[in-house]
Amino acid sequence: VLKALERTRQLDIPDEKTMPVLMKLLEEAGGNWSYIKLDNYTALVDAIYSVED
């Protein structure tokens, strides 16, 4: 979780936006981090930006 938060902080995305999206992605992935961690957490960042749209 810390590495995911560090990555999104680099992009000026607050933890308050990151955590709900991260928890949803983890739930959808059955707790499997490998998809979320791919390409420096690209799936997480993309999911956060899609929620903002």
Rank of each mutant, 00 (worst) to 15 (best):
V1Q: 05
V1G: 03
V1M: 11
V1E: 06
V1R: 03
L2R: 11
L2G: 09
L2D: 14
L2S: 13
L2F: 10
L2A: 13
L2H: 12
L2N: 11
L2C: 13
K3Y: 08
K3H: 12
K3F: 06
K3V: 06
K3I: 07
K3A: 15
K3E: 15
K3W: 07
K3R: 12
K3M: 12
A4Q: 02
A4H: 01
A4R: 01
A4S: 02
L5S: 01
L5P: 03
L5I: 04
L5R: 00
E6R: 07
E6W: 06
E6K: 08
E6H: 08
E6V: 07
R7D: 05
R7A: 12
R7S: 06
R7L: 07
T8G: 03
T8H: 04
T8A: 08
T8K: 04
T8Q: 03
T8C: 15
T8V: 04
T8P: 05
T8F: 08
R9Y: 04
R9F: 05
R9A: 05
R9I: 05
R9W: 06
R9H: 04
R9E: 05
Q10G: 11
Q10K: 10
Q10H: 09
Q10C: 11
Q10R: 08
Q10T: 08
Q10E: 14
L11Y: 06
L11E: 08
L11R: 01
L11A: 06
L11I: 04
D12F: 10
D12Q: 14
D12G: 15
D12A: 11
D12P: 04
D12V: 04
I13M: 04
I13H: 02
I13W: 04
I13V: 06
I13E: 03
I13P: 01
I13A: 01
I13D: 00
I13T: 00
P14H: 05
P14S: 06
P14L: 06
P14V: 07
P14T: 05
P14Y: 05
D15F: 06
D15G: 02
D15E: 03
D15I: 03
D15M: 03
D15A: 03
D15N: 04
D15R: 01
D15K: 02
E16G: 08
E16S: 12
E16I: 09
E16V: 09
E16K: 08
E16Q: 10
K17V: 15
K17G: 02
K17I: 15
T18L: 03
T18E: 04
T18Q: 02
T18M: 07
M19F: 10
M19L: 13
M19K: 04
P20R: 12
P20Y: 11
P20C: 10
P20L: 12
V21G: 00
V21P: 01
V21Q: 04
V21K: 03
V21R: 01
V21C: 06
V21T: 07
V21S: 03
L22F: 03
L22D: 00
L22T: 01
M23K: 09
M23G: 04
M23C: 10
M23D: 05
K24L: 06
K24E: 05
K24I: 05
K24G: 06
K24Y: 07
K24N: 07
L25C: 04
L25K: 02
L25D: 02
L25V: 03
L25E: 00
L25I: 07
L25Y: 01
L26G: 01
L26S: 00
L26R: 00
L26F: 05
L26P: 00
L26D: 01
L26Y: 04
E27M: 10
E27F: 10
E27I: 10
E27A: 14
E27K: 13
E27S: 11
E27D: 12
E27H: 14
E27W: 09
E27C: 10
E27R: 12
E28H: 09
E28V: 09
E28M: 11
A29R: 08
A29Y: 15
A29S: 14
A29N: 15
G30M: 10
G30V: 05
G30T: 05
G30K: 13
G30D: 12
G30S: 11
G30Q: 13
G30I: 07
G30P: 04
G31C: 09
G31N: 10
G31R: 04
G31E: 05
G31T: 04
G31A: 06
G31W: 13
G31S: 06
G31M: 09
N32K: 08
N32R: 07
W33M: 04
W33S: 00
W33A: 01
W33D: 04
W33I: 03
W33T: 01
W33V: 01
S34H: 15
S34R: 09
S34A: 15
S34L: 11
S34E: 15
Y35P: 08
Y35S: 13
Y35K: 11
Y35I: 12
Y35E: 10
Y35H: 12
Y35N: 10
Y35G: 11
I36W: 03
I36K: 00
I36N: 02
I36P: 01
I36H: 00
I36C: 02
I36L: 08
I36Q: 00
I36M: 04
I36G: 01
I36F: 04
K37I: 15
K37M: 15
K37L: 14
K37Q: 15
K37W: 11
K37F: 13
K37G: 09
L38S: 12
L38F: 13
L38Q: 15
L38C: 07
L38K: 15
L38Y: 10
L38G: 09
L38T: 11
D39E: 09
D39Y: 08
D39M: 08
D39W: 07
N40E: 06
N40S: 07
N40Y: 06
N40V: 03
N40W: 06
N40K: 05
N40D: 10
Y41N: 00
Y41H: 01
Y41F: 10
Y41R: 00
Y41W: 10
Y41M: 03
Y41I: 05
Y41K: 00
Y41V: 02
Y41A: 02
Y41S: 00
Y41G: 01
Y41P: 00
T42G: 11
T42S: 15
T42Y: 13
T42A: 15
T42M: 14
A43N: 09
A43R: 12
A43D: 03
A43H: 10
A43I: 10
L44G: 00
L44W: 03
L44A: 00
L44Q: 00
L44I: 04
L44D: 00
L44M: 02
V45K: 03
V45A: 02
V45N: 00
V45S: 01
V45T: 06
D46L: 15
D46E: 15
D46C: 12
D46S: 13
D46F: 09
D46R: 13
D46N: 14
A47D: 03
A47Q: 05
A47W: 04
A47C: 06
A47I: 05
A47P: 00
A47H: 05
A47R: 09
I48H: 01
I48W: 02
I48D: 01
I48V: 08
I48T: 03
I48F: 03
Y49R: 14
Y49E: 06
Y49W: 11
Y49K: 11
Y49I: 11
Y49Q: 11
Y49T: 10
Y49A: 11
Y49S: 10
Y49G: 08
S50G: 14
S50Y: 10
S50E: 13
S50H: 10
V51C: 09
V51E: 13
V51S: 15
V51Y: 14
V51G: 12
V51A: 14
E52W: 14
E52S: 13
E52K: 12
E52G: 12
E52P: 12
D53F: 13
D53T: 14
D53S: 12
D53P: 12
D53L: 12
